[in-house]
């Protein structure tokens, strides 16, 4: 399937699973599995931003670490289309086979403090991927690092300083420069603005949007903050207990969610307008453990619409409208509209 403007998928993830064994006792007996990623599938089109949202522990980071092959998935396919048009499944590749792909798929981390080496200058931090990818000439690397720092809005003279001399937002820019050093095509960003203050967050989001257009980057953007994901994404996938429960264009998912969990999640976001009344708390209870998810639909213990079938039979992700998929038996019969004042731009932001 091709994207809305005919763009080809750059990455196709199918039936991705990552189970972590739970081991006990002196003989390290496996007594069960954490189903951190449990049958995840989606496409990422060239040049788009796919947002991945969900609450803590739902499997966002594990999904991105599988795609980056920071870990091997338990099963599934991750079909990546290379620059020359050929397609390669990232899942079974060995370290050596992955090496040429590392330059094309890069990562931006959540923690601008932990992701840089404090004992290395910006030149070494940003230039390291270049060195690894064979740019051994120091002068050449300096030029490239200077160019990258300028690209992310930092002064090239900064390259001889150490990370501790920079603020959170500046460190996140350094992390972005590092990720872009090898001219990647796919950038996986795991909570890249979560640690930043509102005003700094806006600067970094603007930078990401601008770089995406200039360099025709494709983003998989992982975050738990719904307004941030809404702002940056073309399409959004919502995860719950290791599974995608809904996937749709941003506007559809925020205005006409089809999954009861998505609707509850949207209602839980406090709106920055005192004239909008706080929504009723409709989600009770807690997220089940991915080590022992309930039978049937994983959402059924908390779902106000659950019936006998939901407790027995696990729903599959199915396309209900063009490009809008949902994992719920009853989606077409539910009335889940988001209250108008929560989406109507007639208020302050209009």
């Amino acid at each position: 399937m091709s994207g809305p403007d005919g763009a080809q998928p750059l990455l196709r993830v199918r039936n991705l699973r990552k189970f972590f064994p739970i081991v006990k006792g002196v003989f390290s007996r496996t007594v069960g599995h954490v189903r951190a990623v449990d049958d995840v599938g989606f496409d990422v089109h060239e040049g788009e931003t796919l947002g991945l949202v969900g609450e803590s522990g739902c499997g966002k980071t594990t999904t991105s670490r599988c795609i980056l092959r920071a870990m091997a998935p338990t099963s599934g396919e991750m079909l990546y289309r290379r620059r020359d048009g050929s397609t390669v499944d990232l899942a079974p590749l060995s370290r050596r086979e992955l090496r040429p792909l590392r330059a094309e798929i890069q990562m931006i981390f959540q923690d601008p403090f932990g992701s840089l080496n404090p004992r290395m200058t910006l030149f070494d931090n940003v230039g390291e991927p270049l060195l690894v990818n064979g740019m051994s000439n120091r002068g050449e690397r300096m030029d490239r690092v200077a160019e990258l720092l300028r690209l992310v809005g930092l002064r090239p003279e900064f390259m001889h300083r150490f990370p501790h001399a920079f603020s959170g937002g500046q460190r996140q820019r350094i992390g972005i420069a590092r990720a872009l050093s090898t001219n990647p095509r796919l950038v996986v960003a795991d909570e890249p603005v979560s640690a930043l203050d509102v005003s700094v967050q806006a600067q970094v989001l603007n930078l990401l949007l601008e770089l995406q257009q200039r360099l025709r980057l494709t983003f998989l953007f992982v975050a738990h903050d719904l307004s941030v994901v809404r702002h940056i994404s073309d399409r959004v996938a919502v995860m719950y207990v290791g599974q995608i429960v809904e996937l749709a264009p941003t506007k559809s998912i925020f205005e006409r969610p089809l999954h009861p969990y998505t609707a509850a999640l949207l209602k839980a976001v406090p709106v920055a307008d005192p004239r909008v009344p706080a929504g009723d708390v409709l989600l009770k209870g807690e997220v089940p453990s991915p080590a022992s998810p309930p039978a049937g639909c994983y959402f059924n213990p908390r779902c106000p619409f659950a019936d006998e079938r939901c407790r027995r039979e696990a729903p599959v992700l199915r396309e209900l409208a063009t490009g809008h998929s949902v994992r719920c038996h009853h989606a077409e019969r539910l009335q889940l509209a988001v209250p108008q004042e929560r989406i109507d731009p007639a208020g302050r932001s209009g």
Binding site: T49, V198, S199, Q201, A202, L205, L209, L226, S227, V228, R230, H231, I232, S233, D234, T250, K251, F254, L266, V269, V271, A272, R342, I343, D344, P345, G347, S349, G350
Partner: peptide, 11 residues
């Protein structure tokens, strides 16, 4: 400067 739950996106 705050991205909201309404209004234009990707700007």
């Amino acid at each position: 400067s705050m991205p909201g739950m309404r209004g234009e996106t990707r700007v």
